[in-house]
Design a protein around this nucleic acid. Structure first.
Lengths: 199, 199
DNA sequence: GCGATAACCGTACGGGCATACGGTTATCGG
DNA sequence: CCGATAACCGTATGCCCGTACGGTTATCGC
């Protein structure tokens, strides 16, 4: 959607229906035809970008399951979808962050924000739980705190990576990010998947 | 400052010079007397709230040093200042998050944001480094990745705690937060401080 | 006492924005 | 062919906001 591009390189408060219409090559009247109000439009955009990111992560997980790859590895890739490691993801990050800021006082936006976060945590928790069945995870480990921890580092790292790209770059955080996530995963997935022990 | 209260319970875009003046019990002209432009006013407010939080964390660290308490313990308290665990911190969190959202396209705000984050990371890194001298930290551990990791979880946890307070509460994340931070610290501060081994 | 500087006020202006509205063209089922 | 529904346009209106500006009162060094 054109809204996202506008947000990405001009900021959320630079978004006006007129400008959005122009960016999308249509008239003000037409965007009114599709969205009754500006907030509707923004909400739709937020849901869209959110769904896209989540879709990619989901796909990686599904693909991993299909090919029976080690869960820790798949999870690392899925979580990396949330880090602004290239231009595309950086753009998405800016959009979601902008919305997150506004969500502080816009219940509709807040709802998709918390639901997204909640779903991700559930998925990670499920992945950890599944890890027990194939021996990657210690049998008596509680998946929920582990999921909280993993999603928290991911979210925190995302912001650090983003900030470092704009500020003084000593040791780029983007390089560290991968190893930090790996370390965190290693603390949870302590065993090797039995099915692949020999490969 | 009155701006922060306004932001905290009405949102950043509800902040207008007129409203701010009213909230502070003064006239529009007077706030103009103190801040040449609205952006100046906001920047000032951002710096202020940022400095306040940081000040508390600093104080805890200094106090810890004075009383020679275990670094891991002190660090846990300092990092907790960034989590929205009570109304005061929750308010501050909302304000900083709102500004962070706008900072995406306001260089002046962005600078404050990255500098704050950077300083915190440096402090944590220094604390980890100091931990080596008294035996709490393994001698060959690199403080920088550890600091990145610790600040990342803290930041990520902050958002999860905030969100959970608004959404469906299964197991409140605020309870988990402390243990997650503790776990993370335990992974870095693996030894006991020699000076206190006997107490 | 007196100039100057700071604290302080109210209003007017110019601009930008969301939204409402009335109208025109296409699409298409029957 | 025709009615209706959807796609589509441009403008007008009403509101709110940031800022400029001219003016008034206090504070205080000298």
């Amino acid at each position: 959607m054109a809204v996202c591009e506008l947000i990405a390189d001009q900021g959320l408060d630079a978004v006006t229906v007129a400008r959005t219409a122009a960016a999308a090559g249509m008239s003000v009247g037409l965007v009114q035809h599709y969205f009754r109000t500006k907030d509707d439009m923004l909400l739709h955009a937020f849901k869209e970008v959110t769904a896209r990111i989540r879709g990619r992560a989901d796909e990686r997980i599904r693909g991993g399951i299909r090919h029976r790859r080690p869960i820790a590895e798949v999870l690392a890739e899925a979580l990396a979808e949330f880090l602004p490691l290239d231009e595309a993801r950086r753009t998405e990050f800016r959009v979601t962050r902008a919305f997150a800021g506004r969500a502080l006082d816009a219940p509709a936006l807040a709802e998709v924000d918390v639901e997204t976060a909640h779903r991700l945590r559930e998925d990670v928790a499920r992945a950890v739980h599944n890890g027990k069945e194939c021996g990657e995870v210690e049998e008596d480990l509680d998946p929920w705190p582990a999921a909280v921890r993993l999603t928290a580092v991911t979210e925190g790292l995302a912001m650090q990576v983003y900030r470092d790209a704009a500020g003084t770059e000593g040791v780029p955080a983007s390089e560290l990010a991968a190893s930090v996530v790996a370390a965190e995963l290693a603390a949870v997935f302590t065993g090797k998947c039995r099915q692949y022990a020999g490969n």
